[in-house]
């Protein structure tokens, strides 16, 4: 059985799947290096990300299956869950057989699993579009640290590049050591080891106080409902909220 090992990037994953499609042997796994566990009879094939191959597969998914499927596959990739490489591989094999109709096979095992997982990622991204908090630090950059369950920083960066288009910002995934940096023109993803000077400006402290005060006063005492509050806003996201 062939096990294709990729570098952890989306291009790498697509390249590995591309190679797997041409494999004569049974495909046992499409794995990141850290997922792979040596086993007997396993044929380990390291794959280097190849832009031409990954682009080719990317376009084939978009045109021959559907843009929705492509989006869901990307989200599943971002989940970083185990076995997602193989799930996507099998999903694509089915997809290339039946085309865009695959999106309507909601009761098919593969489709159901893919939808479920991509839904989780999409929901966390949506939640954090609201819960991410920027702080203005010395030097004028707006800095937003967070620790998401899934690797959604690219989804957030694209959102905030459209929205907060006229300010410099930096979104920092502290769990993964990743940062998205934006300079009012474009954003790029980079590893983040050294923190910038995180001292807050006086202006920043002023607005934080205002926000905290607003948060306190907008709640209706007679309707207090902490259960509903944590149901909507799980506690693990409170760490970087200014108001909590």
């Amino acid at each position: 059985m062939d096990y294709f090992i990729y570098d952890g990037s989306f291009q790498g994953l697509l390249t590995a799947i591309y190679e797997a499609f041409y494999s004569k042997n049974q495909v046992g796994g499409i794995l990141r290096e850290d997922e792979y566990q040596p086993a007997f009879f396993a044929n380990k094939i390291p794959v280097e990300a190849d832009l031409q191959k990954s682009d080719q597969l990317y376009l084939a998914i978009k045109n021959k299956i559907s843009p929705q499927s492509l989006r869901k596959i990307y989200y599943v990739f971002l989940s970083e869950k185990k076995e997602t490489g193989l799930l996507i591989y099998h999903y694509l094999r089915l997809g290339f057989k039946i085309g865009r109709k695959i999106d309507s096979y909601l009761n098919h095992e593969l489709v159901a699993r893919l939808n479920q997982l991509s839904g989780k990622v999409s929901r966390e991204a949506h939640l954090l579009k609201g819960l991410l908090r920027f702080r203005k630090i010395e030097g004028g950059v707006f800095y937003a640290p967070f620790e998401p369950d899934y690797n959604i920083i690219t989804l957030l960066a694209a959102h905030f590049a459209r929205r907060l288009a006229d300010q410099d910002w930096l979104i920092h995934d502290k769990r993964r050591g990743l940062a998205a940096v934006y300079n009012r023109e474009e954003w790029l993803l980079t590893d983040m080891v050294n923190l910038p000077d995180l001292r807050l400006t006086e202006e920043e402290k002023h607005y934080q106080r205002l926000w905290q005060s607003f948060y306190q006063h907008i709640a209706i005492e007679a309707r207090k409902n902490p259960r509903l509050q944590v149901q909507n806003m799980p506690r693990r996201y409170w760490k970087y909220l200014i108001e909590k």
């Binding site: 579009k129 819960l131 288009a165 006229d166 207090k224 409902n225 902490p226 509903l228 909507n232 806003m233």
Partner: peptide, 24 residues
């Protein structure tokens, strides 16, 4: 958003926090 501007609408709406009464 417009060139040089700030902000845009999100069709589905976005909640930014939940107050102590559980409302968004």
């Amino acid at each position: 958003n417009t060139p040089g501007g700030i902000g845009n609408g999100a069709r589905t709406g976005i909640c930014h926090s939940w107050s102590d009464d559980g409302r968004c």
